[in-house]
Design a protein around this nucleic acid. Structure first.
Lengths: 141, 141
DNA sequence: CCTATATCATATAAGATTGCTATGAATTAA
DNA sequence: TTAATTCATAGCAATCTTATATGATATAGG
């Protein structure tokens, strides 16, 4: 039940792009320095974000990245699904693709469905803008 | 964000013991047959449950397992924490053991804390008895 | 005492995933 | 032309997952 570094770094990456948006491109080198992460690993992660159109890239000198849309348009859920894959705690609670033969008389599936819903309710209702606006010491749980 | 087979089988195992409690011992062979799982794998899983005192074992012929307490005393959370380890989606949201150096000015930690709380709220409020009482076709999400 | 039936204790292992690092090509501003 | 970037792949050690395998130990019943 862990979120991998890939997913977590992707969120931090998006937040960093939002925080450092001055209209100019933001280079991964700068992000990596600020976030204390490897440029090379971030390159792999941002590839997913650019290919999905969440981030716009510009090559060459003075190149870099920008958010394609406003921070409030990106939920944590969108980013995690992209990087982590499905957020379902077990495969059988989603598409019929991974249809389990025991599904019909499985008495535990409602547990996983409820868990899945709870997870989605959280990540689909927090945006990058929420994170940016949330100061480090005044958050409420 | 997946729950492994170990955790899922552990829950099914506990439910099976609850459902088939006649006062007599329940052998893993029977559980394995009903749940369509390997006896050997179940042995490993139930070891965790017996060592924690959730299940009482009896060796030898006519031996087997019984729940130590009533099904309503076991939550899904208890079982998953035992088999999966911590349910925290990221290490930094729990004990100070895995203290992250960025923790104090980390603006994403509230996301993971909220997610962690949501997960716990679900798994700590469903008991084995709830699962047993929940028919396969009349559950409500 | 013998045997069948259980649990208990370890060891092994293939395959997948994680969390990176490495190499180098392609693009572009200055 | 050069320096700064992104882009595209490959590689790899470590760990985790999901079991299977072997055999020891305990016990009820005959």
């Amino acid at each position: 039940m862990k979120i991998s570094t890939k997913g977590r770094y992707a969120v931090r990456l998006m937040v960093d792009l939002a925080q450092n948006n001055t209209g100019a491109n933001v280079s991964l080198k700068d992000v990596a320095k600020r976030q204390d992460l490897s440029v090379k690993y971030l390159e792999q992660i941002i590839t997913l974000l650019t290919k999905s159109g969440y981030v716009i890239s510009t090559r060459g000198a003075n190149g870099g990245y920008r958010l394609a849309q406003k921070p409030e348009n990106y939920t944590v859920g969108m980013i995690l699904r992209l990087t982590e894959g499905s957020l379902a705690p077990v495969a059988c609670v989603e598409s019929d693709v991974n249809m389990c033969p025991r599904k019909d008389d499985c008495c535990t599936i409602f547990v996983w469905k409820k868990l899945y819903k709870a997870i989605c309710d959280v990540v689909d209702n927090i945006t990058i803008a929420d994170i940016v606006n949330m100061g480090a010491d005044n958050y409420i749980i």
